[in-house]
Design a protein around this nucleic acid. Structure first.
Ligand SMILES: NC(=O)c1ccc[n+]([C@@H]2O[C@H](COP(=O)([O-])OP(=O)(O)OC[C@H]3O[C@@H](n4cnc5c(N)ncnc54)[C@H](O)[C@@H]3O)[C@@H](O)[C@H]2O)c1
Ligand SMILES: NC(=O)c1ccc[n+]([C@@H]2O[C@H](COP(=O)([O-])OP(=O)(O)OC[C@H]3O[C@@H](n4cnc5c(N)ncnc54)[C@H](O)[C@@H]3O)[C@@H](O)[C@H]2O)c1
Lengths: 278, 278
DNA sequence: GCTACTTTGTGCCTGCGTTCACGAGCGGCT
DNA sequence: AGCCGCTCGTGAACGCAGGCACAAAGTAGC
């Protein structure tokens, strides 16, 4: 394993918090109010959903997976209660979420599985494939490149980049690793819309800038750096350290509370109904 | 009646959406006992502030990293403005966040870097090391196991598990891969508090159950499954597919209005981005 | 020692997100 | 055909989070 210059760059000011769902929601929430204030009945041929809250978008993806499971069982319809249980959310929340995308369930029956899947895919923009580029074919990058979940879910990995001369030129899963200098031309040529950054933190901003220059509009960042991007570019960050630290907080919290309340078993027993009961 | 999804155990509801920050916040918001008679001067060993919002906890981890950067520059103090810029948040938000942990900045000066780092580490429970166990040493698991960011940030990886006979028994970074059956005894013996699941989705719930039985209170889940756990266990999910789909949504969203240098209010007229018609 | 300036800490307001509760439609049963 | 029961869709209430703006508190300068 190459031991890269681990460290963190000086970083810069004036950025955005891509991790913060609520803030992103606020940003994304563009006024979508239709002028049609007239009749409540709405005879409009626009069953167009109103703007979808960011929090809902995140859950739609989860619903989609749950729907896949349901579909695998052969069921043709599913109730909000069942589906919400599978997705781990409140039934009312699920129904409201689905209502945002102009959903049509059938009262007394539930949601038609296949129809709902199509609808969510449509809203999430999954009907068109999004070419993905991955930059940084190291430890993590290799794992990601070899992961079938990309293409399997409509996100074909089309380009790989690195600076390491030992890596540039090799093939991974049939994809040639290009030099990072070529991000611009290659991404533009392949019409890459999503970039995944798996380089060390020090290189992330530079790589990000190149991606943006190449017209990439969405970036998934694994490097522990807050990326600075123009407003039109969407960044999502996956930060292992942050996740662990959040978990640590809860361990400490509960640890103080009680170390060993009720260890094993006892799981199924008390049918706690709703999600939270405190 | 619809058939329950195969992947899901009987267990019933009571699942939780670890990804959802806001909801988690509500859940985690437990009234802290300390009435906070806090005198400004000294930090008692119990600086446990009043209950810290979940959203704030997530950002504290980010601040911590930013503080590391600042510290590396040699600065002894940092203003909320500078630090917030480095962390990519609003200065007021940062100050409020820090106020939750009973922070003591100095007015007219800023925050003492080293003190603030210690304070955040204390609140996040990073003063005690958390032994981590990783289950599923496959594609992703290997990358994680080889990653220095674990131990480097106070989360020593102490145990590895898998079912594959070819993997059980090998050493990775000096850690022996144990058979998954031994989760219970090994984790209990090493006092593992955080479990990381990197198995295929089908095995995740089973592994999760074992971890819980072993007394693990926090789980980081990479498998695309909604885990069912008792309320006292905290789960956080990292789901690549979900992240990509969220990005996809935004691509579709923004893709419609093309390059748009200025962010004018002209967006009002052409309605609704939500549903993409193609 | 007093004034002016800097920066924190926070009260208040706004708005999003979640949840409850209930009306509205739909299928099935008698 | 009509009634009954099931489940969706959503209006309204509530609570949390974000952000502005200002008073408090400390520093630096004179
Ligand atoms: N490995 C993990 O499990 C893991 C987990 C969470 C986060 N991360 C983060 O992901 C990133 C990558 O981690 P890793 O373990 O794969 O590191 P790594 O060192 O194994 O791989 C980094 C790769 O990026 C390449 N690279 C360096 N500079 C580059 C540049 N300017 N342009 C293009 N490529 C460049 C290197 O040649 C190397 O191949 C790091 O930021 C790390 O913090 C890793
Ligand atoms: N590889 C990636 O980049 C990536 C990205 C996102 C999510 N994921 C998810 O992470 C998980 C692992 O992905 P992967 O690519 O490493 O898969 P993988 O098949 O390479 O590795 C899975 C490992 O888990 C082991 N395993 C299977 N059943 C087990 C059990 N019951 N107990 C213990 N170990 C068991 C297997 O032996 C194998 O070593 C999957 O759920 C995948 O969806 C992977």
């Amino acid at each position: 394993m190459t031991v890269p210059p681990q460290a963190d760059p000086p970083v810069g000011p004036g950025s955005r918090d891509a991790q913060d769902v609520a803030a992103a929601a606020a940003r994304a929430r563009v006024a979508a109010k239709l002028a049609a204030a007239g009749s409540p009945g709405s005879a409009v041929p626009h069953p167009e959903a109103r703007s979808v809250p960011e929090a809902t978008v995140a859950r739609l993806a989860v619903y989609l997976r749950a729907l896949g499971d349901v579909s695998a069982t052969g069921a043709e319809t599913v109730s909000s209660e069942d589906l919400s249980a599978a997705a781990g959310v409140n039934p009312a929340k699920l129904r409201k979420d689905l209502s945002y995308i102009g959903s049509n369930g059938t009262r007394g029956v539930g949601y038609e599985v296949s129809r709902l899947i199509r609808q969510i895919e449509l809203v999430l923009g999954l009907t068109q494939r999004h070419a993905v580029a991955l930059i940084g074919v190291g430890n993590l990058g290799h794992a990601l490149a070899g992961y079938g979940g990309f293409a399997g879910r409509g996100f074909p990995l089309r380009a790989l980049f690195d600076v390491d001369p030992d890596l540039v030129g090799i093939n991974i899963n049939g994809i040639l690793v290009e030099h990072v200098e070529r991000i611009g031309e290659v991404c533009a040529g392949l019409d890459v819309t999503i970039g995944v950054i798996a380089t060390p933190g020090a290189a992330a901003q530079l790589v990000c800038d190149r991606l943006v220059a190449a017209g990439v509009r969405s970036i998934l960042n694994f490097a522990p750096v807050v990326l600075q991007v123009p407003a039109r570019v969407e960044v999502r960050k996956v930060d292992l350290a942050v996740e662990l630290q959040i978990l640590s907080f809860h361990v400490a919290r509960r640890g103080d509370d009680q170390v060993d309340p009720a260890p094993p078993a006892a799981r199924n027993g008390p049918a706690v109904p709703a999600v939270v009961r405190r």
